[in-house]
C-alpha cells in the first residue's frame, strides 16, 4: 500500500529550526501560526505548538477556548485559515491521507454505532485502515483485550455503559498501531471508576512509547497524565510547560507559620527577621498565622525554621502549600475553569 510508506525515504516537509529547547529533537508535530475563524470570531488565533515523540501533551483550557478546533486541525479534519501543520514529517495540507495513517483519533462524543457490536466496530476500522484480514483480526483481539472488552465484544454497543463505549473507542483508535494518538476530552462525563480505567490505559500506552495529544478541561487529569501542557485561552497560547514548571512559574509556594503564642509583637518580630531571608518574596499576616510567599527551593524550610528557633519562637503549626494547577490556570487565563467533578 503506497500510502503507508512513512520511512525516511518518504517526502519530508522541511521543518525549520532544530534549535528548540529539547536539545535538537525534532518535533513529531509542529504547528505554526494556526488561525481558524468561524464567522467573525477567531476560534484559534495565531497558535504555535510543538509536540515531541513519546510525550503526553495536554491542551488545557475552558470550554470554547479552541482546544477542539485546534485538535481537529491537527488531525486533518479542519483546514486552518492560516498557518502550517506538519505531522510526522508530512504537511497536513498536502498529505492529509499520509497523516491519517499515522494517527489515531478518539473523539469527544461517544462516537460509536449503537447498532453494531464491539467486534464489528473493530472489523470496520481494521478495514478502513487497510489491514489484511488476519492482521485485522489479531489486532482487534489485542485491542479488545487491552481495554477489557473481550467478554462483551459480541454484544451490541447499545448495551454498553458510557465507560465501555469510551474504551471501545480507544480500542478502535489503536487498531492500526498509530504513532500518535489524539484524545479529545477522554474522560468527559465519565464516572470516577471509568475515568480511572481510562487514565490507566493512557499510562500504559505512554509506557509503550506512544505519543499522545489530549485535550481536557479537568485540571487534575492534566496534572496527572500530561508531560507538557499548553494552556489555551481565547484561541491563544496562554502558557506552556510541564505541570511542575507551570506551577513554579507562579513563584508562589506558600509557607504558613502559626506561633504558639498569638502575641502580635512576636509575629512582628518574626516577620522582620523572615523578610531578610533569600527566596522569601512576600510576608503577610492572616488569622494569627504568618504567611510567606516563597520561591521554591530545597533549603527554604530549614532556613525559615532556623530563624524561628533563633528568635526563640515555638510554633503551633506549619504548613507548606504548592500552588495547584488551578491557581496556575486562573493566573494565566484570568478566570476559573469550570470543574464538573466537584
Amino acid at each position: 500500500m503506497k500510502t503507508q510508506n512513512v520511512s525516511s525515504t518518504a517526502p519530508r516537509a522541511p521543518t525549520s529550526d532544530r534549535s528548540d529547547r529539547s536539545g535538537g529533537v525534532k518535533p513529531i508535530i509542529k504547528a505554526t501560526g494556526l488561525v481558524k475563524r468561524f464567522g467573525k470570531t477567531a476560534a484559534v488565533d495565531g497558535l504555535s505548538l510543538e509536540m515531541y515523540e513519546g510525550e503526553v501533551f495536554g491542551l488545557l483550557g475552558p470550554n470554547g477556548a479552541g482546544k477542539t478546533t485546534t485538535m481537529r486541525m491537527l488531525i486533518t479534519l479542519l483546514a486552518p485559515d492560516a498557518g502550517e501543520i506538519v505531522v510526522g514529517g508530512f504537511r497536513v495540507r498536502d498529505d492529509a491521507e499520509r497523516v491519517r495513517n499515522l494517527i489515531g483519533y478518539i473523539p469527544q462524543e461517544r462516537a460509536v454505532d449503537r447498532a453494531l457490536t464491539g467486534r464489528e466496530h473493530m472489523a470496520l476500522f481494521a478495514d478502513l485502515y487497510h489491514l489484511p484480514k488476519a492482521e485485522g483480526e489479531e489486532r482487534s483481539a489485542w485491542a479488545l483485550h487491552m481495554v477489557g472488552l473481550t467478554d462483551r465484544a459480541d454484544e451490541v454497543v447499545a448495551n454498553y455503559s458510557g465507560g465501555m463505549k469510551k474504551r471501545l473507542e480507544i480500542a478502535c483508535g489503536l487498531i492500526h498501531r498509530p504513532k500518535i494518538l489524539f484524545l479529545d476530552e477522554p474522560t468527559l462525563g465519565l464516572d470516577v471508576e471509568s475515568r480511572t480505567v481510562i487514565w490507566r490505559h493512557i499510562r500504559e500506552l505512554k509506557a509503550e512509547g506512544m505519543t499522545m495529544v489530549m485535550s481536557t478541561n479537568y485540571l487534575d487529569e492534566a496534572d496527572q497524565l500530561c508531560d507538557r501542557l499548553a494552556i489555551i485561552d481565547q484561541g491563544k497560547l496562554a502558557a506552556l510547560g510541564t505541570p511542575r514548571q507551570l506551577k513554579e512559574s507562579l513563584q508562589g509556594d506558600v509557607l504558613s507559620l502559626t506561633p504558639e503564642n498569638g502575641d502580635s509583637s512576636v509575629r512582628e518580630r518574626l516577620t522582620i527577621a523572615l523578610k531578610g531571608l533569600d527566596d522569601v518574596v512576600h510576608v503577610v499576616h492572616r488569622d494569627g498565622a504568618i504567611e510567606l510567599r516563597v520561591t521554591p527551593s530545597k533549603t527554604i524550610l530549614t532556613r525559615v525554621l532556623d530563624v524561628v528557633n533563633g528568635q526563640g519562637v515555638r510554633l503551633e503549626a506549619i504548613q507548606y502549600t504548592r500552588p495547584s494547577l488551578e491557581k496556575v490556570f486562573i493566573h494565566y487565563t484570568g478566570h476559573q475553569i469550570k470543574d464538573e467533578w466537584a
Binding site: T76, E97, Q108, A111
Partner: peptide, 13 residues
Amino acid sequence: ENGFLERLMAAPI
C-alpha cells in the same frame, strides 16, 4: 450528528 462521521473521516479513506 453523533460524531461517528468524523471518526470515519479521520481514517485514511
